[in-house]
Deep mutational scan, measured.
Amino acid sequence: SDFTIRIGDRTLHLKNVSEEILKILEELLRRGIDFEELRKIVEELIK
C-alpha cells in the first residue's frame, strides 16, 4: 500500500509498503524518531 509521512514541513512518500514495514515505521514515529533517521531507515528497507 502507499503511505505518506509528514513531519513538520517535510514529506516522505512510500509506495508498495508492506503492513509489517508500516507497523515498524509507526512504532518509530511513536518513539519520536528524527525525520532524517526515519528517511535513512526507509531507504534501507525499500532497497
Score class of each variant (00 low, 15 high):
37 E>G: 08
38 L>P: 01
46 I>M: 15
13 H>W: 02
43 E>V: 11
12 L>S: 01
17 V>S: 02
26 E>S: 13
30 R>T: 15
20 E>V: 08
44 E>S: 12
12 L>F: 05
14 L>Y: 03
22 L>W: 12
37 E>P: 07
19 E>C: 05
47 K>H: 11
41 I>F: 09
18 S>F: 02
34 D>F: 05
34 D>E: 11
23 K>R: 14
9 D>T: 05
16 N>S: 07
41 I>N: 09
8 G>R: 02
2 D>L: 00
39 R>A: 14
20 E>G: 10
14 L>G: 02
11 T>E: 15
29 L>T: 08
37 E>A: 14
13 H>E: 13
9 D>S: 03
44 E>Q: 15
11 T>Y: 04
41 I>S: 10
10 R>D: 15
39 R>P: 07
14 L>P: 01
18 S>G: 06
11 T>Q: 09
13 H>K: 05
32 G>D: 11
41 I>D: 03
20 E>C: 03
13 H>R: 06
4 T>I: 15
19 E>L: 10
31 R>Y: 06
28 L>T: 07
14 L>C: 02
3 F>Y: 05
3 F>N: 02
16 N>H: 08
24 I>S: 11
8 G>K: 03
46 I>N: 13
45 L>G: 05
16 N>E: 09
13 H>M: 05
41 I>K: 08
32 G>H: 11
40 K>D: 12
5 I>D: 00
43 E>R: 07
41 I>E: 07
44 E>G: 12
40 K>Y: 12
4 T>R: 03
46 I>D: 13
29 L>S: 05
24 I>V: 14
27 E>A: 10
17 V>Y: 01
8 G>F: 02
3 F>V: 15
26 E>K: 13
36 E>I: 06
3 F>A: 09
35 F>N: 04
34 D>Q: 15
17 V>I: 11
25 L>A: 06
31 R>C: 05
43 E>D: 14
47 K>N: 12
32 G>Y: 09
19 E>P: 15
21 I>G: 12
39 R>W: 10
25 L>P: 00
4 T>H: 14
20 E>A: 13
6 R>I: 15
42 V>D: 01
18 S>W: 01
15 K>E: 10
10 R>I: 14
11 T>H: 15
44 E>R: 12
24 I>F: 13
32 G>W: 04
32 G>E: 14
2 D>C: 03
26 E>I: 09
27 E>M: 06
34 D>V: 10
32 G>P: 14
22 L>T: 12
24 I>E: 08
2 D>I: 00
1 S>Y: 15
35 F>P: 06
10 R>H: 14
17 V>T: 03
27 E>I: 07
14 L>H: 00
3 F>I: 15
2 D>V: 00
33 I>K: 05
12 L>E: 01
14 L>E: 01
28 L>G: 03
24 I>N: 08
41 I>Y: 08
20 E>W: 07
13 H>T: 08
39 R>V: 13
31 R>K: 15
21 I>N: 13
32 G>A: 12
34 D>C: 01
45 L>Y: 10
21 I>Y: 06
34 D>L: 10
42 V>G: 05
24 I>H: 12
5 I>C: 02
31 R>F: 04
32 G>C: 14
44 E>L: 09
4 T>W: 01
32 G>R: 03
4 T>P: 02
4 T>C: 04
42 V>N: 01
